[in-house]
Design a protein around this nucleic acid. Structure first.
Lengths: 336, 336
DNA sequence: ATGAAAGCGCTAACAA
DNA sequence: TTGTTAGCGCTTTCAT
């Protein structure tokens, strides 16, 4: 591979001028810039990452931590990841993905080594559960970190206002005339699930509606669990007139279960989801849902972590960026 | 962070001797080794990756390429990844995951840059589909690569013998007295799906059994598709006495569908899967399946790619490592 | 068994 | 606007 000195030799300019052109610095004559740019192209030159890291004492790479179950559970992560990747792509940063029960991040020392060896500059974490052990390590060691999809105390976060979003959904159902509303809940130890469930009961209370525990379906944020447990409710109990699912995947699992028992949506029962994943508009009937700007959340988190890494996280105060949600009206809810 | 010279200063030995100890070289006195080891521990020293890369002209990292759909579709990848990670953990190599429709690997030039910048030493690819564009790039540029779960021409591969494995499964069913056997097929453009389907028909033919296209259920290697299409078959057609699923996830989707129509397994219909993922033994009834040594395949691939990278892939001839499969008998198949 | 010197490819600081 | 020098932390080569 060509190095900076090859370019220097070929163009007659010093390696410093070459470096300036490569890094888009000021104070380079148009002539030099052109000549060097051409040589870069001709020799198919790309800067050596290791050399840069060594002198800059930075790796220019961000670690993305997710848990294995998460990877396999939904499009939610896919969308966020896309946002992260495409944003980072525009910067000089790379992304490394760590699955959190892998040996790579299993131990505190591993995590610290990643930072100490200048292998990783900072971390992005998607929706960690409340008691995730490595979050403590991240915090006590002041490692630059941004959380997505959870409002974790003491951390920089990018999240939606789950309370507000849930009220939006439930009051939408109420406005459509629904009075008996069930809940398909998410994974118990995740912040988003907890907040949405809390808001759900608060909202029903506020409007003087019955809270029927029979209508709390465990879905674990998964298609299959929601499907199985909806089937159980259908076969063993009575149905409300509407269902609020804490994510779209569970809403879809539930819809498939309802259909397999010949229950019509929204004719017999209405259902509203949360997230607005791709599949939501593709299924029958298209799913009415609370849109979380997942992609933008990924982007925002990527920007924020780069900011932290560049300015030094110690200097900046933790903040949580709250993104707006909105109802996307499709065809799975009907007026009573 | 402590550097090699800090250790040198503290112990009084030259940085060269320190380097030798760190790298476990010969020709170091026991005394020096001890003293230096202690200092390393005291100062919490870890070698700077960037410096090493620069001088070695190697990144010591392997890229793992998978497609987004794959990530979200099954435990299959999880198990392989675990094998890869835990093997690599024992070497000096790191793992970076690339999702293949991300911008990171979208273009040929990106892929080449990763190699040229010494960012990645080689690639591991899990079950690429037949027409994956980047496989050509990998091949024509002679980039060290190992494929897992597909026998791709011209590449180093770690795979099972799908033909043999499928015969194993079908002849097991036949031996149990089954004569009408259906197939739940995988994603059409993937080698493993194609090979299993081909073997399936060959095996039925060989035994003079009827091949009924009605009993070919599209499952796309996914739980949901298998579930939906099994439901369709139940409602609109007749059932065979046994089903062969090209992976466990589809088998489970199908089982859940059958159960939701009160069809007993294995009482009314037998079903055999492929993979032996964790869930297989947890569901009701526990799934009889063809065990693919996924974890070991991950390990083998990791070893092989390290070998290629260390010796230079040009010197070694492409080979495909074939792993053995076996039937794991549980309770989803009954004797007729 | 140990060490000195050189250099990997790049950028920061300073000089011209 | 351009160039010179030094050095990031490590390993390789060659002495001792």
């Amino acid at each position: 591979m060509a190095t900076i000195s090859d370019i220097s030799r070929k163009t007659g300019y010093s390696i410093m001028t070459v470096s300036r052109v490569i890094n888009n610095s000021k104070n380079v004559s148009e002539k030099a810039r052109k000549s060097i740019a051409k040589a870069v192209k001709d020799l198919n030159y790309t800067p050596n990452a290791a050399a840069r890291r060594l002198v800059k004492q930075k790796s220019q790479t961000i670690g993305l931590i997710i848990t294995y179950e998460q990877i396999f559970s939904s499009y939610y992560f896919l969308t966020i990841m896309k946002g992260i990747e495409e944003k980072l792509e525009k910067t000089d940063y790379n992304l490394i993905m760590y699955a959190s029960n892998s040996p790579n991040v299993a131990s505190e020392s591993k995590l610290l080594n990643l930072i100490n060896q200048k292998f990783i500059d900072g971390f992005l974490v998607i929706a960690p559960s409340k008691d995730e052990f490595f979050m403590k390590t991240l915090h006590t060691n002041k490692i630059p970190t941004v959380i997505i999809g959870a409002s974790y105390p003491f951390f920089n976060c990018v999240d939606v206002d789950n309370n507000k979003a849930t009220f939006l959904a439930i009051e939408y159902l109420i406005k459509k005339g629904h009075k008996s509303i069930g809940l398909i809940r998410g994974t118990k130890n995740r912040y988003d699930a907890i907040e949405r469930e809390k808001a759900f009961t608060e909202c029903l209370e506020k409007h003087g509606l019955e809270i029927n525990r029979m209508w709390f379906i465990d879905g674990h944020f998964e298609y299959r669990q929601a499907h199985l447990n909806t089937l159980k409710l259908i076969d063993e109990g009575t149905l409300p007139t509407a269902l609020f699912a804490a994510n779209d995947l569970m809403a879809i699992g539930s819809i498939d279960a309802l259909h397999s028992r010949s229950i019509k949506i929204p004719g017999d029962i209405s259902i509203i989801g949360f997230d607005d994943i791709d599949l939501a508009k593709l299924i029958q009937p298209p799913l009415t849902t609370v849109k979380q700007p997942l992609y933008n959340m990924g982007e925002a988190a990527a920007s924020r972590i780069v900011e932290l890494v560049e300015t030094g996280s110690k200097k900046t105060v933790s903040q949580t960026i709250r993104m707006d949600t909105e109802i996307v009206e499709r065809e799975s809810v009907r007026k009573l």
